[in-house]
Design a protein around this nucleic acid. Sequence first.
DNA 1: CCTTAAGCGAGACGGTACGTCGTGTCTTGGC
DNA 2: GCCAAGACACGACGTACCGTCTCGCTTAAGG
Lengths: 204, 204, 204, 204
Amino acid sequence: MAEKPVPDASRRSEASRRAIHDAALALVAEVGYPRTTVEGIAARAGVGKQTIYRWWSSKADVLLEAFLDLGERAAREAGQRPDALPDTGDLAADLKLVLRATVDELHDPRFEAPARALAAEGLVNPRLGAEFVAGLLEPQLGLYARRLRSAQEAGAVRPDVDPRIALELFLSPLAQRWLQRTGPITYAYTDTLVDYALHGLAPR
Amino acid sequence: MAEKPVPDASRRSEASRRAIHDAALALVAEVGYPRTTVEGIAARAGVGKQTIYRWWSSKADVLLEAFLDLGERAAREAGQRPDALPDTGDLAADLKLVLRATVDELHDPRFEAPARALAAEGLVNPRLGAEFVAGLLEPQLGLYARRLRSAQEAGAVRPDVDPRIALELFLSPLAQRWLQRTGPITYAYTDTLVDYALHGLAPR
Amino acid sequence: MAEKPVPDASRRSEASRRAIHDAALALVAEVGYPRTTVEGIAARAGVGKQTIYRWWSSKADVLLEAFLDLGERAAREAGQRPDALPDTGDLAADLKLVLRATVDELHDPRFEAPARALAAEGLVNPRLGAEFVAGLLEPQLGLYARRLRSAQEAGAVRPDVDPRIALELFLSPLAQRWLQRTGPITYAYTDTLVDYALHGLAPR
Amino acid sequence: MAEKPVPDASRRSEASRRAIHDAALALVAEVGYPRTTVEGIAARAGVGKQTIYRWWSSKADVLLEAFLDLGERAAREAGQRPDALPDTGDLAADLKLVLRATVDELHDPRFEAPARALAAEGLVNPRLGAEFVAGLLEPQLGLYARRLRSAQEAGAVRPDVDPRIALELFLSPLAQRWLQRTGPITYAYTDTLVDYALHGLAPR
DNA sequence: CCTTAAGCGAGACGGTACGTCGTGTCTTGGC
DNA sequence: GCCAAGACACGACGTACCGTCTCGCTTAAGG
């Protein structure tokens, strides 16, 4: 069993890491994911190919890390990262507010290309899919689950409802519309989703 | 501008078409979509590469057609193609029944590899995504929309509800769980989705 | 045992073959053998790398074939290929004449770079060395051996002398001076070699 | 113009130098010259790459020094270094004796791989070729020249013969046979060379 | 004795070339 | 004129070494 020698992370060049992140994101935005190549990233970053292969196992890996890093940086510079959803007591209003912000984000082209590419890659590559979900999706879902639990305590949501499933009622439709382009993404749409999810389809 | 000469479809070899379909599906199932190549399909089908490029524009195209064809053949041999969802008058029961069948289908390995691959390709390639949605998703969604409209007429669903949005409440979560592997796909899960979607999360 | 599929030689592109020969010779002459690369030859010849690897196994192989081909073409266009050394009856004069022509050839820069490179490669790579000897050296040596045998019949060379060894007395020193740059290559030098070889070093 | 700082030879690690020599010779013997790499030598010697590049300019340089060093060590431990050829008065016998020893040496595998590699490299790289000739060949040739001059004084060789050329008559054929593998290397062969060279090919 | 500057092992780095694989086009010969 | 076969130009892959560049760590000399 030939062990592949683990590189010494303490000697890693931070400058190269950043340059590679930036090059990967720029290329995906400019020419699209399939025409982004490891060779192209290396050339754009002014870096040898081996430096990429030393630290990542594929272009998908590079892009995932770059994207997560971008998210963190964006969050940090956009002031405090909200570690919780707003909780005014009005669940519907709170959810609509947050989802409208999400709608705006989904329309941001800097976000779109890499996110879509990573989602696609994740469908076919389970390892990457798991990392994508764990690093990006899961933290968000947690916030929604917490807000729903709070609403349960306040009596605004039935106590027998499972928050982890409940949140899918309005989040999954939005995600699918965006990913699969099955319909327009508007404030009206997300508002409607919240209303339907909270009060159901059957008449009261 | 030299038009690319359109091949004469009437002289097309049906045997080759079938062989290519079968080879594509087999290879995707055996080695996965990324390692399936046009060359490999041609070799497996005992066909020249040009025969593939004459009639399709990419391996994704081949696979999409093969998959749709497979669906049709499966439907035909599985008796009548249901051109409508069951309508016993009990909306919840009908939906649960159909979704349970879908759960079974999603666990079928012959279905899984190509479907996932096509979905992934569709995320990144809008043209293919549109064909995928139009050819596969849309017909299904139409059936659900029809069933919901029937329920509205029967008074089982609020008249102001938009069926095209309503159906997303239980279908999108299922689709996303399957595609992104964010959770288990069980009868209990789909049953729960139907219940939540129909009656909402807020207490009555 | 995985057989490598033998390419179909009847479909081979003659134009590519020539272009590759020319590119290889030009590059070796211009930048030297070590800085000549397969990639460079392919680019210069306007050819894909695979086309080189399909028909040759290394850059040394390409160069050897190109060089032999060049020799044949040069011979053909320089009128009849002499299939024998001159035989005027005066062995010393005949040898001196031919060796002076060889001296001229060894000073031809188009000849020098590839010949030296191939000789060097042949020292280290037995297979190539054998081909080099068989294709280039051996035919020449044969001519000298024949001339010596003729001289033996005429009584100008002792009958017990082995011509295959005898010819080395004047050819090997010339070859070595040229290859290892151990001394100047002049008419006077080759004349001297012939004299020494024919009459020996010991006084008569 | 920034001069490259000359390293301080007085602080040089003798142990590393020896380890590098040994590693170079061992690798050339084991895997051949082309597959011997600076990195490989460093790893085998337990030495940093920079230590090699600090003191040598190429792997050929390393090997040349290692080989010369090996020769000196071998000479020293094999008793006295003969700084002259034997001179019994019988030139033919003396030459045959020495050449038979050379034949033995040429068959020694420890000698073969590096010597051949260095000769090959020297063909293509004039600087190294010159060092190879000056360091290895020239001293040997000088001994033969001296012996021939002594024979001239004794009247055993014609006085008008140039010893530097004369020695090539029997040394170059041997060298070429060995380097280019154009024939077997035997005592009989070298004996014959001496006879032919001394007495010539023409009848007396 | 203690600094201090060199050589040193180690190995990451920007590069170049390798030899292989797959793409989509083109050509040949068979039907 | 479609087809099987496969050569071709091209482009990217992932690997191997190159020669340079830091890193800490001995390890003398010289103050």
